[in-house]
Write a protein that binds this DNA or RNA. Structure first.
Ligand SMILES: [Mn+2]
Ligand SMILES: [Mn+2]
Ligand SMILES: [Zn+2]
Ligand SMILES: [Zn+2]
Lengths: 183, 183
DNA sequence: AGGCAGTTGCGACTGATTCGCAGTTCCTGC
DNA sequence: GCAGGAACTGCGAATCAGTCGCAACTGCCT
């Protein structure tokens, strides 16, 4: 869920076949899930959504496809500070790099692009004589709202945000029992 | 393994007890391992080394202690691009933040501190109205050495594509042959 | 249309990290 | 010093995330 998601639907697929990569139904489904996601999804969420398009998709296919897209630099993999669990999150990579801020208290994710970030990357390429393929800047901290008041000055300790829900997932799922992991 | 590791040995421990955290033999061992590490270690490597100091240490204690140190902002957790496996790496956090470059081909890790990076963080705090607790900038790319020659300009793939399509890829590795798994 | 390299679903598997619990230990206050 | 209780630990079992080998299948080039 990049900052500004204005893409011709299906263009994502074209990027693959242009590279001589076989375009299967499963891949199309996964691509479309990633392309249209409004927030960062992890593998199990991608699987769940992709299955709505092609019920037979297996988790290995999701992982294999994510690996493929990663290797080709078409998606980025994120930790988002591992606020809950150790899963990784994915997002389509567009022209402009952006960083991710995760509020250690409320779990909100904020995206931010900056000229300075671009400049820093150029500096690294030059000063370290490196050719950058992927740059991940992830920040953990406290958003203005959470910093509001009512917090002893000392307590900087992250209170892991133990509340996240996939709005568009498992429509008939009892609130008490969240299904985690990948089936 | 921070850029310049010039620390009074044992000072790390003091930081903990000052915060009213109980100082146990196991924690002392783990702290000393982290404090004296010359490179980034993952949990299983920390365990193995800590056991040389206190043979009874268990892996849960390592994880619990890493969690503690993380929460108190005394160590940073890194992915190092997950070049091999999904383990996380740890390093003592010192005054100055630095970024990590991982060569996708040879696996070499390079550290780099930059004024621009500091400035970027200040910009984020101001523009996003955020209070940063931890900032992780990890870069994947190709070092000068690996970029030497014999690589078509287009090829961003971590592992060279053999034919037209994508025959899968495995992380490159030379010079480092670590034993994996914990306990 | 035919063929086969590249893909997929399965199921079993590994590696990384977590948890409950019963026994142990650090640290504070006497 | 010394007792008491909260904090910490080892253990074993569990969970979670991601991987792998293999036989069946299919996109895509000719
Ligand atoms: Mn994003
Ligand atoms: Mn990670
Ligand atoms: Zn917040
Ligand atoms: Zn290299």
């Amino acid at each position: 869920m990049p900052l500004a998601n204005s893409q011709i639907p299906g263009k994502f697929q074209a990027l693959l076949s242009d590279r001589g990569i076989r375009l299967t139904g499963q891949r199309r489904a996964i691509l479309s899930v990633i392309e249209t996601a409004k927030r960062h999804l992890d593998a199990s969420q991608i699987l769940r959504r992709a299955r709505k398009l092609d019920a037979s998709i297996d988790r290995s296919t999701v992982y294999r496809t994510l690996g493929l897209l990663k290797r080709h630099g078409l998606i980025d993999e994120l930790d988002l500070m591992h606020l809950e669990g150790e899963a990784h999150y994915y997002e389509r990579k567009l022209n402009r790099d952006h960083m991710h801020l995760a509020c250690l208290r409320c779990g909100k994710i904020t995206e931010f692009a900056s000229e300075l970030f671009d400049a820093l990357q150029r500096q690294v390429e030059e000063r370290c004589n490196y050719r950058i393929a992927v740059a991940r800047l992830e920040i953990g901290g406290y958003c203005a709202q959470c910093r509001g008041q009512a917090r002893s000055v000392e307590n900087h300790l992250p209170t892991p945000a133990r509340h996240r829900a996939d709005p568009g997932a498992e429509p008939h799922q009892h609130a008490t029992k969240r299904t985690k992991g990948i089936s």
